[in-house]
Nucleic acid binder design. Structure first.
Lengths: 140, 140
DNA sequence: GAGCCTATCGCGAATGGTCGCAATAGCCTT
DNA sequence: AAGGCTATTGCGACCATTCGCGATAGGCTC
């Protein structure tokens, strides 16, 4: 199924703005904010408004074409959905971000599935805590 | 150490506003939003501004007297720090919130401590996913 | 290709939260 | 009890995001 087909199959329309937002997310190397996406789209389509970017990100998210993650308590970060999944550790003291292999999350996911019949998305929010270095400093 | 002493020991001052914010959080039965706290404080001190409430919640958080949790992607919820810790499961389809026993989180916390020397706060953000009921509906 | 239905757009206002600034007021010293 | 240092306050502006609205434009049918 092509992009146009899968968009229309959900009762949505394939607008130029929607294509440009998807394109900007797919081109981005890392997790990117809505504002960064808006700036990149505006290079080709200056009239796009912020709410259009947010609404399209949400639509593309529901279509399974992009995803978002909450790394800190401030801005949401977006990325393409077809990459290998991974979790994030974020230190609340120094702000350091570490990616972790999904295997680490899988054990817990299994437990939530078994004990609560709940299918968790453990990559949705970063795990906050205190990193190795900041923990050593505090305990000394 | 009394409240006044522990506040001052951190180089902070014990203002009336700060006491009223702490009092409002301690009286609240459940997780409560900053706006709800503001409204309760205004009953006794009408002139308090929203930023003062936010700043005091942050200060009391750093002092270890209150904590906050992110249940959904919208508002932050505050509660007293001296209660038994617990995690939250939130369904992204129907919004249902379930509390889970800390034991479920402990296994994963141990793994992050061992493999990454990272001390996680797994109660800080709710775990989002799909609950039992919504999972059954989707697969049928 | 024209017409119609309605998803989507751009805009401006609203929401939840943070920040910079001048005025106020805790708390320490005397 | 008075003075001084500076943490804190209230205010207004700003940031990230959502929402309601009238105007625009996809995409189906003919």
């Amino acid at each position: 199924m092509t992009l146009a087909e899968s968009v229309r199959a959900s009762g949505r329309r394939l607008t130029l703005q929607r294509q440009l937002v998807l394109d900007a997310v797919q081109r981005a190397r890392h997790h990117v904010t809505a504002d960064e996406i808006a700036r990149r789209v505006r290079a080709k389509f200056p009239a796009i408004g912020p709410s259009t970017v947010y609404r399209n990100l949400q639509a593309l998210d529901e279509l399974g074409l992009v995803t978002h993650t909450h790394l800190d308590d401030r801005v949401t970060r977006w990325h393409r959905a077809d990459r290998h999944p991974h979790g994030h550790l974020v230190c609340r003291v120094c702000g350091e971000e570490t990616e972790i292999r999904p295997a680490v999350l899988d054990a817990m996911a299994k437990r939530l599935r078994d004990e609560h019949r709940f299918e968790p998305d453990l990559a949705h929010s970063a795990i906050v805590g205190v990193c190795r270095r900041c923990r050593d400093v505090r305990s000394s």
